[in-house]
Design a binder for these strands. Structure first.
Length: 316
RNA sequence: CGCGGGGUGGAGCAGCUGGCAGCUCGUUGGGCUCAUAACCCAAAGGUCACGAGGUUCGAAUCCCGUCCCCGCAA
């Protein structure tokens, strides 16, 4: 089949690579415009664009696809459109352009975890399983009928990054399979059960404060779910501390501590904080105006008194 | 010229109202302990980002220029 691929970041790139390897033909790649990255604001092309160029596939980058993309897409001779983390909402007009319409790879077992950050939310909520769904895109949000689903367990070692990689690979295979099925006409679309639907919004920086009144396990999950972006934060003596990793630890405290109080801060043991239940060690952190480092390194240069209360960071 | 922080032994930092380069950790060697997230002793390791720059009797510290790193904002 002739496929128009729409996707932007790494997760999409995994799928794109697989499609290119398959017997199907990727006739065009659509991705978000190049974005200025970093302090230097260097224009950086999305990963999918780079791959497309390597394979001499035409690339299209629309500012607003529903407005400036329609005519172009219509002019491309394709059977189907495939989306994988594209980053823009498609209009009904676009959904109708190709014979088979649009199919999407979503990183959850729908109808659970609709929304843009299923991997992150699955981690934050402490799910034991996650998966990939191939669905037909309708006008609504991740609500189309399901073609294929595959689930996999989440382990304590998993991070947003590792899951993205694994799910990207699973999703890539499923998508190729889906294209085969569609081409052969042997497939069945199953409507989603709206009663079982759950939806989670985009993550926000304003909601990145760690709530230490939760259990150490919940803090651990929150931190790893946020680790890629926007990164969990807490306020240490007036300074923002980004936390990339917090692991539950057992600790013998000399006295009772409140949730959010520093229980131990030595360069041997690390930075240990009391939670609503149990303790966590903030072992991979980034102090304000500084680089990412281990807690033990941080404590070599900075002394934090035991009993210091970690507060919320205020965002303006 | 978006705003701000910073470049000091392997790591993280202090020193910056000029005057012998310091702290915590790591490393190496030795000691103690049934044992340790423990402790004791000793050692190695730095042209203080760069500039045959400026000021000075003297600069890590003050001035000038350059480069690099980081946070915020996007």
């Amino acid at each position: 089949m002739k496929v128009i691929f729409m996707g932007t970041p790494h997760y999409g790139a995994i799928v794109l690579n697989k499609l290119i390897e398959s017997k199907h033909q990727v006739v065009a790649v659509v991705c978000q415009p190049d974005k200025p990255v970093g302090r230097k604001q260097i224009l950086t092309p999305p990963e999918t664009k780079v791959i497309a160029k390597e394979h001499n596939i035409p690339v299209y980058q629309f500012n607003k696809i529903r407005i400036d993309g329609v005519e172009t897409l219509k002019s491309i001779d394709a059977d189907i459109m495939v989306t994988a983390a594209y980053g823009q909402i498609l209009s009904q007009e676009i959904l109708d352009i190709t014979k088979f319409g649009v199919y999407n790879v979503h990183a959850s077992v729908l109808p659970k975890y609709r929304g843009s950050s299923p991997i992150q939310w699955s981690l934050i909520n402490g799910e034991k399983e996650i998966g990939v769904t191939i669905l037909k895109t309708l006008a609504g949000l991740d609500n189309g009928p399901i073609l294929l689903t595959e689930s996999m367990p989440i382990s304590d070692d998993d991070t947003v990054e590792s899951l993205m990689q694994k799910l990207g690979e699973i999703g890539a295979e499923l998508m190729v399979k889906a294209l085969d099925m569609l081409e052969n006409g042997k497939y069945e679309l199953k409507e989603q059960n709206e009663d079982e639907m759950t939806y989670f919004p985009m993550l926000k920086k304003e909601k990145s404060n760690i709530d230490f009144s939760k259990t150490s396990r919940e803090v651990f999950n929150f931190v790893r779910g946020m680790a890629e972006w926007p990164v969990a934060v807490t306020n240490v003596c007036g300074n923002v501390l980004k936390v990339y990793s917090a692991t539950p630890v057992s600790y013998l405290a000399e006295r009772e501590y409140e949730a959010g109080e520093v229980v131990c801060a030595t360069s041997k043991l690390g930075l240990i904080v009391k939670c609503g239940e149990g303790y966590v060690r903030l072992n991979d952190i980034q102090p304000q105006s500084s680089k990412r480092m281990k807690d033990t390194d941080f404590l070599n240069g900075k002394k934090i008194p035991v009993g210091t209360k970690l507060l919320d960071v205020e965002f303006n």
